[in-house]
Design a binder for these strands. Structure first.
Length: 419
RNA sequence: GUGCCUGUGGCUCAAUCGGUUAGAGCGCCACACUGUGGAUGUGGACGUUGUGGGUUCAAGUCCCAUCAGGCACCCCA
């Protein structure tokens, strides 16, 4: 009983129960995406290293991507994120795609990291992007889709929140503090919740900021009204108001996001208790398409991994009960002589559009009924010698624990009534 | 890639300062129930204690290595 071949570190098996959870997420992502008019697409799982080299952020590519050489000595990467592929695909057909481009995708990504809760090396990710519009209402639409997804799976604004900031605003504020190295300042901002006040200050000094600048930066991050200085954010929040999802959002000056290509609005969703890591992250990227060789086409989007959202949905009891068998009827097999009758009955019920399992072995009836219970099947059909003699079948409602015996001809109709 | 913690039947856990045949609950299987199910009862199967070394008269327990996942860092979905 020992399976001695282990799974690859950070890879997951999807047994039917996990698969149904993944599909539940997928179906909701699809429904919400389509509700806003987005088309499904996908990119290749394998990409060249160059695609990511300039833009995704040093760390993500150099240390966290699966990279290997193919037989022709090319550096091949298992995609760690989808946005660069999207940018390339859009750049390649920039002249023929009607804009705005509204696309979404759900597929596997790989990152070579230490697995932890909510983080594995192989994970699935929902990406949704709107390209070809610089409008703030486009940013708001993407953000609203995130909120609508939460609504769709039953997560309320008291359970999850989406935090918003604007990198352009932060950049101008940082610059006005006399800080030259914006990236260093962002790194510092990113750590404000993780370090003690003193450690944070020391880290700031290490990033070559003066103590004065660190103090001013700190004050900046405490200013929850900072967004009022940004026309973009004012318009953005106003659009969310109109879209009816404002309650999910809050301004958060400490959110800057890690990926280098974000230029303006950035967003990050979390559970209100902040028990888990970010549910999704995204923002506007003005230059990405141009950076992979296309025209300047601005885009905005977010990516949501399958693991954290599953943990959050689980915590708040939003995940659906797992229906073990897709069948709602089990046709039992009484004895070897009844094979033909059972097969025919099963086929007749299926012909009526009802999914049916047939028990393949003539074992004791109680075991067959137990199996039906274990599989969550609602109705059992029994055709023993008594029924067979008279051309009848017994239909048993396992939930109500009652049964009726009817003519074969009425079987499918009667079952439909019970379901 | 760094540090720390954990690893016992399918699952959740137990086993006093290292000490005799490693226990329990749940689950699973069989029977009670020779044409009827989630209950109950009885019985049963399943462990070379993640793996490999070492120390010791004796290791689930101590040491080393390794693998896995958990926490923090890093980074991020």
């Amino acid at each position: 009983m020992k399976t001695k071949i282990p799974t690859v570190k950070g890879a997951r098996d999807f047994y039917p129960e996990q698969m149904s959870l993944r599909n539940w997420l997928y179906e909701n992502m699809k429904a919400v995406s389509q509700k806003f008019g987005y088309q499904e697409y996908d990119g290749p799982f394998l990409e060249t290293l160059e695609l990511y080299a300039a833009k995704s952020g040093e760390e993500l590519v150099k240390e966290q991507a699966f990279v290997f050489k193919d037989r022709g000595d090319e550096q091949i990467t298992l995609r760690p994120e989808l946005t660069p592929s999207l940018a390339r695909m859009v750049a390649q057909k920039a002249n023929e795609l009607p804009r705005p481009i509204r696309w979404w995708s759900f597929g596997p990504m790989w990152r070579y990291e230490r697995p932890q809760k909510g983080r594995s090396r192989e994970f699935f990710q929902w990406n949704i992007d709107l390209l070809g519009s610089d409008s703030l209402e486009a940013d708001a639409e993407i953000a609203a889709i995130g909120a609508e997804f939460f609504k769709a799976i039953g997560l309320t604004s008291s359970e999850v929140k989406i935090q918003i900031n604007n990198r352009k605003l932060m950049e101008s504020q940082i610059t006005s503090l006399g800080i030259g190295d914006i990236k260093a300042a962002f790194r510092l901002i990113d750590r404000v919740d993780k370090l003690s006040a003193q450690a944070w200050e020391e880290y700031g000094v290490k990033q070559e900021l003066t103590v004065e600048q660190v103090k001013n930066l700190r004050a900046l991050l405490d200013d929850k009204e900072l967004w009022r200085k940004s026309d973009e954010l004012i318009r953005f929040f106003s659009a969310l108001e109109s879209l009816g999802v404002r309650e999910y959002f809050e301004y958060e000056p400490t959110v800057v996001r890690g990926l280098d290509y974000y230029t303006r609005i950035v967003m990050e969703a979390r559970d209100r208790d902040s028990e888990f890591r970010a549910i999704f992250g995204g923002g506007r990227y003005d230059n990405l398409v141009a950076d992979v060789g296309g025209d300047r086409i601005s885009g905005v989007g977010f990516a949501m991994g399958d693991m954290v959202i599953a943990l959050v949905a689980e915590k708040y009891g939003k995940t659906p009960k797992f229906a073990k068998s897709p069948a709602s009827v089990l046709v039992t097999l009484f004895n070897a002589d009844g094979v033909a009758d059972s097969l025919k009955s099963a086929a007749e019920i299926r012909a009526g559009g009802i999914p049916v399992e047939m028990f393949p072995d003539p074992i004791k009836l109680d075991k067959q009924l137990k199996y039906a219970d274990a599989q969550g099947i609602k109705i059992a059909v029994i055709i023993g010698p008594d029924e067979a003699k008279e051309g009848k079948v017994t239909i048993k409602d396992l939930g109500k624990r009652v049964q009726i015996t009817v003519n074969r001809g009425e079987m499918a109709g009667k079952i439909r009534e019970l379901l």
